[in-house]
Design a protein around this nucleic acid. Sequence first.
DNA 1: TTGACGGTACGAAACCTTTCGTATATGGTC
DNA 2: GACCATATACGAAAGGTTTCGTACCGTCAA
Lengths: 133, 133
Amino acid sequence: MTIMTERPLPRPTDAELAILGVLWERGPSTVRDVHDALAETQDTGYTTVLKLMQIMTEKGLVVRDETQRAHIYEARSTEQRTQRQLLTDLADRAFGGSPARLVMQALSGRKASAEELTEIRQLLDRLEKGDAK
Amino acid sequence: MTIMTERPLPRPTDAELAILGVLWERGPSTVRDVHDALAETQDTGYTTVLKLMQIMTEKGLVVRDETQRAHIYEARSTEQRTQRQLLTDLADRAFGGSPARLVMQALSGRKASAEELTEIRQLLDRLEKGDAK
DNA sequence: TTGACGGTACGAAACCTTTCGTATATGGTC
DNA sequence: GACCATATACGAAAGGTTTCGTACCGTCAA
């Protein structure tokens, strides 16, 4: 039995995050799928996307199924989990490690709709009930 | 009269953000000041910090006063402003451009203390009164 | 004046990210 | 089988980030 020291995944780069976004939205996809989806907003070449996804495979950000001719890629970490990682990362780098300060800045700096504010308030209620998560 | 097309400052890199952190905390500082402060936690060479701060000057992230032999550097953007920029940037890249979703994820994913939650709630109150900012 | 000290400037290496050209393989169709 | 469309693999260039060695300059004290 091999001991797999589950190394934490590296922070995805900008380009990698865009690709992950497609994978989260579409689910397991081929390079072509991802490229076509990205083509809506960007215009990066097909082989560029391919190369990035190959690198992401090496990094462990995605896994791929090679049984088909067109490999099928899947994000290794969920969107939520990645988002949280990015947030704690940003909190560490720019908010003295305090997610609370990050939240306050995000709230005060932005115009959130009334519904959103209400939603956030409800979330706070749940949190204070100790109903974490 | 020169037209200064005030270009938006670039997103600071990790190393740059660490330096900005020192400048925000200490106020205008020399390279040595910054290096010594960083030495508490990291261990990057003096010339490395110097070079970074020179690059940051080129980018406009900091301004420097060269009247003294030891130049004095100052952050060009406030901590708050930079934090907000980083947050909207992250919201764009990883939260579909929605700061509200970012906030919710930050709240649900983290254990915030009761005091912090209260503080956030008060902030929400002020926001809903239309007392933005 | 000269040397030691502490500062800036500069260049380049090492590494990472992003890009894409080109080579090569595979599968289906005529 | 031969061809064509479409896939992956690979290498390398271009640009950005981080690191530091080395050169050079000014200041001050002996």
